[in-house]
Structure formats: C-alpha cells, structure tokens
Simulated assay, not measured.
Amino acid sequence: MGVAGTGKTTVGRLLAEALEVPYAEADAFHPPANVAKMSAGTPLDDTDRAPWLDAIGAWAHGREGRGGVVSCSALKRAYRDRLRAAAPGIVFVHLTGDRALIGRRMAERADHFMPVALLDSQFATLEPLAPDERGVVIDVAPGPESVTEQALDGLVSLSCPHTVQPVGNC
C-alpha cells in the first residue's frame, strides 16, 4: 500500500517472486471509468473506489491460506477495513517516501495513467497504518531490492514473532 510512485508494483512483483505466490496489480481491477477519470487528472472518490476495493478483496479472499501479493494504494483506513472484511488474514506493507522523491519517480514513469498532478491529493488522502493494523512500514528510498528484503523481514516477524523461521514455517 502507499501513494502512487512508491514502487508498489515493482516491490509487489519482487515480493511475490520471493514468496513464490501469485501477484496481482490493483490497477488491473479498476473499471474503465476510473482509469478515464484518473487519466483526466481527476481524483477518485470513495464511490469510485468501492467496486475496485471489492474486486481486490475478492481476489485476496480467494488467496487466503495459499498466499498472494496485490499492490493497492489502500490510502484510507476505511479502504483497508473493507479489504480486511473480505480477506481477514491480509497483511499490509506500507511503502512510504519523501514527496520530492516520489514526485521524481512518478515523473520518470512512462505510459502510466496516474499523472504527477494527483500526487498531492494522494498524500492528502493517506492515512498511515495504525498501530492496531497488521503490517509493516518501509521507507522506499533505499530502492526496490532493499525494500523487498525489509518487507520479507517484516512479514517474518509478524508471522513468527519469536523465531527467525521463514513465513509459513513457524
């Protein structure tokens, strides 16, 4: 989870590969109307996001007990609550970063429908993971490989708090 440009897709793919589980890109769950709205520089509202979150939640529910990684902004607690309602075992990896760094990364992307102009609205909407939400928070400045390693370490500590065993072998 995190604002646009934090590397959710890149880290998500690397994480899924490391965990040997399927990966899904949340952007693929958006209906065409949402993509058109964002492409025009208009932020989505909660009504726009509801069917998108439900589709992601259904995918995550189908992966419960088997594992999977899906990249999703999940900017608000209410969105994460909706995802947890569909897939109670879901764990969030919140990718964070400095506004300037994220803006530069977004400006360097080619062929993505999310314009840099919407980044400020994403930061304004963002409600960071709360202490009672199962997940880890990772700064993206070090780069995708380091972020993925930190995510794996964080997931291990959440799954096996008293051991150093890989996830699933607690």
Rank of each mutant, 00 (worst) to 15 (best):
G2L: 02
T6Q: 07
G7W: 03
G12Q: 01
G12H: 02
R13G: 12
L15Y: 05
A16D: 04
E17Q: 02
E17D: 03
A18C: 03
P22E: 06
E25H: 05
E25I: 07
N34R: 02
V35A: 14
A36Q: 10
M38P: 00
M38V: 03
A40M: 07
A40E: 15
A40W: 03
T42Q: 14
L44Q: 10
T47H: 04
P51I: 11
W52C: 08
L53N: 02
D54L: 14
A55C: 10
I56Q: 15
G57V: 10
G57L: 05
H61C: 11
G68C: 03
C72P: 09
S73F: 14
K76R: 15
K76N: 08
A78H: 14
Y79C: 12
L83R: 02
P88S: 08
I90T: 14
I90M: 15
F92P: 07
V93A: 01
V93S: 01
L95Q: 00
R99C: 10
R99Y: 12
A100F: 09
L101C: 07
G103T: 14
G103P: 10
R104Q: 13
R105C: 08
M106E: 05
R109G: 13
A110W: 15
H112M: 04
M114L: 02
Q122V: 00
F123N: 13
E127I: 09
E127A: 09
P128A: 02
L129F: 05
R134D: 07
G135P: 03
V137M: 03
D139R: 10
V140L: 10
A141F: 09
A141V: 06
A141S: 09
P142S: 05
G143F: 01
S146P: 12
T148G: 02
E149C: 11
Q150R: 14
A151D: 01
L152T: 00
G154Q: 04
G154S: 04
V156A: 06
V156W: 04
L158A: 01
S159V: 11
S159H: 13
C160I: 05
T163V: 09
P166V: 06
V167W: 06
